[in-house]
Computed example of a mutant assay.
Amino acid sequence: MWAFKDRFDTNYSFFLHGLNYAIVIMAIIWINHFILIPSFFDKRRYFLYTILLIGSVFIGAYLKAYEEDGWYGIYKVIFYLIYTTGAGMAAFFLRRNMIIQGENAEKGKLQKEMELNYLKAQVNPHFLFNSLNSIYSLSRKQSLETPDLVMQLSELMRYQLESSKKETVLLKEELEFIENYLLLEEKRLSKRCTVEFLIDGDVLGLRVSPMLLIPFVENAVKHGAQSTIEKSTIDISATIKNATLYFCVENSKPHKVSSLKRTGLGLENVRRRLNLLYPNSHVFEIDDKEEKYHVNLSIDLSVSILEK
């Protein structure tokens, strides 16, 4: 437009001409963005949308240029309006795509938080039921250790309630929780089950999602020693190397039920939690043999869960 400034008598007429252009451009962009796109393009009525858009551009060009330059001026304005409308559409769809991506990311984050809270809520009663069953077995035998075990269970539940409010807990605390749980179970199973729990490596400073490891231990007790009167073993090891946790649980399998397939809510929950919390930094393997059931889990704890 500056190239044609000499065609105007005054600066006022030049700027008035430019303002008219701007009004026509903004009117077409407004009609396109707020009427044509929502009413026709988004509803996949592409042919009608194209006809109406071309019609809007033609009407705008006709009203702006016909009186001054006739049909030649209309053609020039049409190409100019197509260019500006196309640029406006590109900016519109880019902005809308960014908004949609942001909304989808927020929905995904909210869904992930809801699912994790749901899985955590399932872990609590699952662990409680197993522990109460152990204490119930001792109470039927009128064991003098029952009151102490009830107190020990209350301490375990206190830790569980406190940790469920956190995203992560210290690995040291989580392993201590497992150790206390095994001590509770040993009171009931010590005569027919040998339990080994070894920790190797530096656990200081490392954090892990709470109640993530205990389901493996619970299942070893439930499907191993608790399901038979035979002699049984449970071997658990937690090894830390270069901020990676290698957690292994192995239990003997009763001969009479060795052919049964193991199922359990705890393992399904922990598998889902691993996929949500450590999607690219964990390895989970199960080796189900005739006489042994072996679980191998490795988790890279160097990356924060929040960063994932």
Rank of each mutant, 00 (worst) to 15 (best):
residue 174 E to H: 09
residue 149 L to F: 02
residue 149 L to Q: 11
residue 154 S to E: 05
residue 145 E to W: 12
residue 160 Q to F: 00
residue 156 L to Q: 04
residue 199 I to K: 15
residue 203 V to M: 14
residue 145 E to K: 12
residue 165 K to C: 02
residue 188 R to Q: 11
residue 216 F to W: 02
residue 166 K to L: 15
residue 160 Q to S: 12
residue 183 L to R: 14
residue 195 V to M: 12
residue 199 I to V: 15
residue 147 P to F: 05
residue 180 N to S: 14
residue 172 K to Y: 06
residue 194 T to E: 10
residue 189 L to Q: 09
residue 167 E to Y: 04
residue 203 V to Q: 11
residue 169 V to M: 11
residue 153 L to S: 04
residue 201 G to Y: 06
residue 169 V to D: 09
residue 187 K to N: 14
residue 211 M to S: 13
residue 172 K to L: 08
residue 199 I to R: 15
residue 161 L to M: 11
residue 210 P to L: 06
residue 178 I to T: 06
residue 157 M to N: 01
residue 217 V to M: 00
residue 167 E to D: 13
residue 203 V to G: 01
residue 148 D to R: 10
residue 182 L to Y: 08
residue 189 L to W: 03
residue 179 E to C: 09
residue 156 L to D: 02
residue 179 E to A: 14
residue 179 E to V: 03
residue 154 S to R: 00
residue 213 L to H: 03
residue 149 L to G: 01
residue 162 E to G: 03
residue 152 Q to S: 13
residue 198 L to F: 08
residue 149 L to H: 00
residue 205 G to V: 04
residue 215 P to C: 04
residue 163 S to E: 09
residue 175 L to T: 08
residue 164 S to W: 02
residue 179 E to W: 05
residue 194 T to Y: 11
residue 161 L to G: 04
residue 168 T to F: 06
residue 213 L to M: 08
residue 155 E to V: 03
residue 207 R to N: 15
residue 217 V to W: 03
residue 208 V to F: 05
residue 209 S to V: 13
residue 204 L to S: 14
residue 156 L to I: 15
residue 177 F to R: 07
residue 208 V to P: 02
residue 205 G to K: 04
residue 145 E to S: 11
residue 183 L to V: 07
residue 186 E to N: 14
residue 155 E to D: 15
residue 206 L to E: 07
residue 211 M to Y: 00
residue 206 L to C: 09
residue 190 S to G: 06
residue 167 E to T: 14
residue 184 L to C: 08
residue 210 P to D: 07
residue 201 G to A: 10
residue 199 I to C: 08
residue 194 T to G: 07
residue 207 R to Q: 15
residue 197 F to Q: 07
